[in-house]
Design a protein around this nucleic acid. Structure first.
Length: 461
RNA sequence: GGCGCGGUAGCCAAGUGGUAAGGCCGAGCUCUGCAAAAGCUCUAUGCGCCGGUUCAAUUCCGGCCCGCGCCUCCA
């Protein structure tokens, strides 16, 4: 079944397929700016893109090239570096490492290439020079270089900017050296008081400084994926101006189609509104893990809403995710114990149906629904083909149950309480056993009695 | 002001021109020293409101109400 996905440019659901003769699908996903821990809103986008990546792997095995950048030089990274008093590279490495750890915990496949902006200064300067030569960019009084949006007739096609009316009271834009309000920086001239020691030699005819934000993606895409890519993705907030600007730069520089398909995932809201530190609804993965939730449940919660709809994240939804995942995992364990999957039987099972929902514009909640709808059937009548497809659906959604759920470390005093209680129970001293159960609960643990032993589980906060 | 999205059971959330997937929570039952876990069963004559089109609308059209996002920091 064809893999269909909404295209933000044409605003219709279109089939996704490679266009290059080599059959490799070129996929670029705008990555994080590494100046702080990524929050779960960021991870919604990355998890959704991970499902997309997995689907592509299933659809075009071995023929997918996935690139996701790291923005490691911009106002925010430099600002953080100055604030902490550490070199830029040290700051960005710290947050890159955490980002990678979080991605791993969320079971996101690593992109094939993860280029950095600072690692591609030369490529960016080269593009800027071409744009200047072609008359699409100009040097401003201070030595910065701006892209001239009037030189690109299609400017605004993606975000329909021409249909918009910019807020008149907008004080945010920096018109200092621009010819036109809409022009954007390709290269920013060095300002010692703001930039510290962060600067590189500029393009021909421009001052030393650093690249503007948008050009990095254009340059890295050109280098790692070529002039025309098959799929470009990111969060909706990147639609304008970031992606609009990328299109302008790359198209003018290369003279050819930049991206054949655009996809944007919607925002995650928390408690019905956008996340922000001041509202106190700003969660990182670490925050949630500290509350006792598993990263896999976070992943589930992030996939529980349609990717192109805003999703309201709450602790309740995480709780629901945790419970649902538990059921999924137990069926997985049961079924794996009963059946060894092989591919000799015909398909058409539940797992297959679930993956098909994913093929239909990445309907993750639909896929989850189908999976649960017939979960009992898989559990009770697991045939090799059913099990194989079930596993395939779990792979596509990125739920890896082959890894045991991260057992929380049981404190030794809890262990000894549990051992005592088990002994009391075996000797039918139920009064003592009950008292010990209360003690365990006070320590935050629940003891689950089995036939031949017990399990300890932390109580949810 | 402009652009866009959404309003489906207590909560979350798919979906379709022919009469509502699924998850969570809750309830009942089975099991059980207790507590859980697990299993079984149940839970929207209804899809924001009002009109229209149609044999038939939650699904299409129009109007209205409410909520949210974006408009050059932003996944």
């Amino acid at each position: 079944m064809a893999l269909k996905l909404f295209d933000s440019l044409t605003r219709e659901i279109r089939e996704l397929k490679p266009s290059h003769p080599d059959g490799v699908l070129r996929f670029y996903n705008c990555g994080p700016t590494v100046y702080a821990p990524a929050h779960i809103g960021n991870f919604r986008t990355f998890v959704i893109n991970d499902v997309l990546r997995r689907l592509l792997e299933l659809e075009f095995p071995g023929k997918v090239k996935h690139v996701r950048n790291l923005t490691d030089v911009d106002d925010r990274t430099i600002g953080q570096s100055k604030k902490e008093g550490h070199p830029l590279g040290e700051i960005t490495k710290k947050w890159t490492d955490l980002f990678h750890a979080d991605c791993d915990a969320l079971n996101c496949l690593r992109p094939h290439v993860e280029p950095t902006a600072t690692g591609h200064i030369r490529e960016q300067v080269d593009m800027i020079e071409v744009l200047m030569q072609k008359g699409n960019a100009y040097r401003a009084a201070d030595g910065s270089v701006y892209f001239k949006i009037n030189s690109f007739p299609d400017y605004g096609a993606l975000s329909r900017i021409k249909e918009r009316e910019l807020k008149v009271t907008n004080s945010a834009f920096d018109a200092d050296h621009k010819d036109d309000v809409g022009d954007f920086a390709l290269w920013k001239a060095y300002k010692p008081e703001e930039d510290g020691d962060v600067h590189w030699p500029g393009p021909q005819g421009a001052a030393a400084g650093r690249p503007g934000w948008h050009i990095e993606c254009s340059a890295m895409i050109k280098k790692h994926l070529g002039e025309t890519i098959d799929l470009h993705t990111g969060g909706v907030d990147l639609l304008f101006p970031h992606h609009e600007n990328e299109i302008a730069q790359s198209t003018c520089c290369n003279g050819t189609t930049f991206a054949r398909h655009w996809y944007h995932s919607e925002h995650l809201l928390v408690d019905g509104t956008t996340m922000s530190k001041s509202k106190g609804n700003y969660y990182t993965l670490g925050d949630l893990v500290a509350k006792g939730y598993s990263p896999m449940a976070v992943r589930y919660a992030l996939l529980a809403g349609h990717p192109r709809k805003q999703l309201n994240f709450t602790l309740d939804s995480l709780h629901a995710a945790e419970s649902a995942l538990k059921t999924l995992r137990s069926v997985y364990d049961e079924v794996c114990a009963k059946v060894t999957a092989d591919s000799s039987e015909k398909t058409g099972s539940v797992g297959q149906m679930s993956v098909m929902a994913l093929h239909d514009d990445l309907n993750t909640p639909g896929a989850l629904g189908i999976l649960f709808r017939d979960l009992k059937h898989i559990r009770d009548f697991p045939t090799p083909s059913e099990v194989r497809d079930f596993k395939r659906a779990l792979f596509a959604l990125g739920f890896d149950f082959s890894i045991p759920s991260s057992p929380s470390a049981v404190p030794t005093d809890v262990t000894s309480l549990a051992q005592k209680r088990w002994a009391s129970k075996q000797s039918k001293d139920f009064a003592t056993a009950d008292a010990l159960r209360k003690e365990l609960a006070a320590a935050g643990w629940s003891m689950l009695d089995g036939k031949d032993g017990y399990k300890l589980e932390p109580l949810k906060k």
